[in-house]
Simulated scan of single mutants.
Amino acid sequence: MSAADERAVNGKRELTEGLAAQILDHIRDGGLAVGTHLTAQGLAERFNVSRFPVGQALQLLAAKGVLLHERNRGYFVSSAKDASPETLGLAPRDEASDVYFRIAEDHLHGRLPDPASEAYLKDAYGATKAQLNAVLSRIAQEGWAERRPGYGWSFSPMLTTPESLEQTYRVRLALEPAALLEPGYRLDPEIAARCREAELRLLDGAIETDTADALHERGVRFHEAIIGASGNPFFLEAVRRINRVRRLLSYRSMIDRKRYRRQCEEHLQILNLLERGRNADASEMLRRHLEHTIENLQEIRPILER
């Protein structure tokens, strides 16, 4: 096998395993019950990829026991749904993530041509076709690039300044505390337990060792989990849209990780209040938590403006 062929094979494997890990997180964080039917079309729309790689990822999860495959019926969540990507041996998409962050940095510095052809991006970042497709699908899902009809990709100028990142937090400040006060609010105990486990793991040392990608996802999952428990899908959809577009500067802000211990501790306090049914207190705690984050943005502004 030539070096080029080997890179292509590795790129496809990374795409499949990366999607499998995303689907598994979707199952766990969404609290999907055993027996829930997963469709390739629905997942393709959620992760903004074609049905083929989703099909490959579903096959992989079925082979690892997370899903059950029934002939002519499809894939269903199995009783092994609480397995983690790490325990299943799903390799992180290191090379694809490297390409992603390099494109992100170049976009923040205004170094990308607009529009940029896929051939240019492939050559400029040394990516395989599979890796580039995965990265561009992720970027499109996050909302800072879109395919141009007939020619390449355009990258959005939105959310490339510290001011725009602060604006997203102010919108969250208006939405998230209100979601905790919805009359039908119910936080599933299993979801609460997974959130607590993730926070304790960070406090035990993962704050310093996790990637920026993993740190960002941990925060996103926590906030989307407690907002999703509101029973009001409009709160959750609004927060998800904001989370998709704020990633660029959020990643850069993680260069300074000193504030994460306080954030983890505040997350745990909010969980404790919700589990005790003290939603009004939890809502106020969440408001203060987001206000602290906005204050921290001013302290790390030099990092965001690099």
Rank of each mutant, 00 (worst) to 15 (best):
A119D: 13
E163D: 13
K12E: 15
S156Q: 03
E291W: 05
C264I: 07
L15C: 03
E146V: 05
L159V: 03
I242M: 11
R252V: 14
H107M: 10
I242F: 11
A62Q: 09
A225P: 01
Y260V: 04
P302K: 02
E105T: 13
I300H: 10
F155D: 09
Q41I: 12
A80S: 14
K129A: 14
A130P: 03
G42K: 11
E176H: 03
R13W: 10
E6N: 12
G152L: 06
L159G: 01
I227W: 01
L108F: 09
I191S: 05
K129W: 05
Q131I: 13
L180K: 00
A127K: 04
W153D: 08
A178T: 07
L215V: 12
Y151N: 11
V54L: 04
A4P: 00
R13H: 09
H223A: 08
H109I: 00
E95R: 15
F234N: 12
A229Q: 10
E105G: 08
L88C: 11
D5A: 15
E166Y: 01
R218K: 10
W153H: 08
L38G: 06
V49W: 02
L15S: 10
W153N: 08
H289F: 08
D188T: 02
A124M: 09
K64N: 04
A40I: 04
S84K: 13
A229K: 09
L43H: 09
G277A: 02
S79W: 07
L203G: 10
